[in-house]
Design a protein around this nucleic acid. Structure first.
Lengths: 155, 155
DNA sequence: CCTAATCGTTAGTGGAGCATACAATTAGGC
DNA sequence: GCCTAATTGTATGCTCCACTAACGATTAGG
């Protein structure tokens, strides 16, 4: 699908499955793009059996060992209850363990288990493929611009 | 949050809740942005009680009366089962009705009811606010570029 | 005409997000 | 220091979305 200097309206309607005026809704495109990325992610991770959220959590716990659930949730924009269920799943698979924080009795300190570390390593491999699939349609400058614009939305 | 000519790396880490290397993952930003849009959508639509998907479906059925479920699903990137559940919900609320297609006995022809048409009208009002919230952080050129790049992902 | 494909449907699984309520712990004002 | 308020984790329950697998009805095509 060649991308030239054409208006976005005509461009994004070049597909055979037109959606009419919906095409002008930015949120609609974000949702569709997210869905496409999600589906490719699932394909790529079907062997590992990990979701986007689970990988993000493993990744962050690895970078910040001892992080609390509330801190983790805030960085990934999840509420406490959602964070709980994800940690529960990862703990059930023995990828993560909880320890009572020494400095704050309310908090749980999260750590990766060995299995979790291994799973994360494999996940990072898969993330590489996944990102390649995603980035392949953009130049480096466009990737940077895209990320910057997306960050303006979620920050 | 001022946006200047700064590299994306430092920019997107300007927030207090840093995520380290995850910041370089494009898919991660798409997911976060989608989450932010989703949350604002829910806020905006709490009175109407409609989801993004439901509004998209009402919108398309209105533009293409008599559309089949399979066609609808393809345009919105949903599989048959997912489309079913959404149509079921909209039908239960009397926003949509199914009719046997005259030209193909396998298909259902979808139409909005009067209540559905009214709901869509209110939804379009709310979409206006929602889009304004979303677009307010971009120039018109940026919006066009963003939509075009997102379309490259989901087309 | 008969087989294969398509479409809708049903049932079941799993992930994610949210609200609410509660217990334990800590922080802060007095 | 004490007491109240806030924080953190937890449990329960709800909704929504996406997918798989199977099945019946219908249509398309060799």
């Amino acid at each position: 699908m060649g991308i030239g200097q054409v208006g976005a309206a005509s461009l994004t309607q070049s597909n055979d499955a037109a959606v009419g005026e919906l095409n002008d809704i930015v949120g609609f495109h974000i949702r569709l793009a997210h869905g496409a990325v999600y589906r490719h992610f699932v394909e790529t991770f079907v062997d590992l059996g990990l979701t986007q959220k689970q990988v993000s959590v493993l990744w962050l716990v690895d970078e910040l060992p001892g992080i609390s659930q509330i801190d983790l949730g805030q960085r990934l924009r999840m509420d406490r209850a959602t964070t709980m269920t994800i940690i529960n799943r990862l703990q059930a698979r023995d990828y993560v363990r909880r320890e009572r924080s020494e400095t704050d009795g309310r908090k749980q300190a999260l750590y990766l288990t060995e299995a979790g570390t291994e799973a994360l390593a494999r996940a990072k491999q898969a993330i590489g493929e996944h990102e390649e699939w995603l980035k392949s349609r953009f130049t480096a400058e466009e990737v940077e611009k895209l990320v910057e614009m997306l960050a303006r939305i979620h920050d």
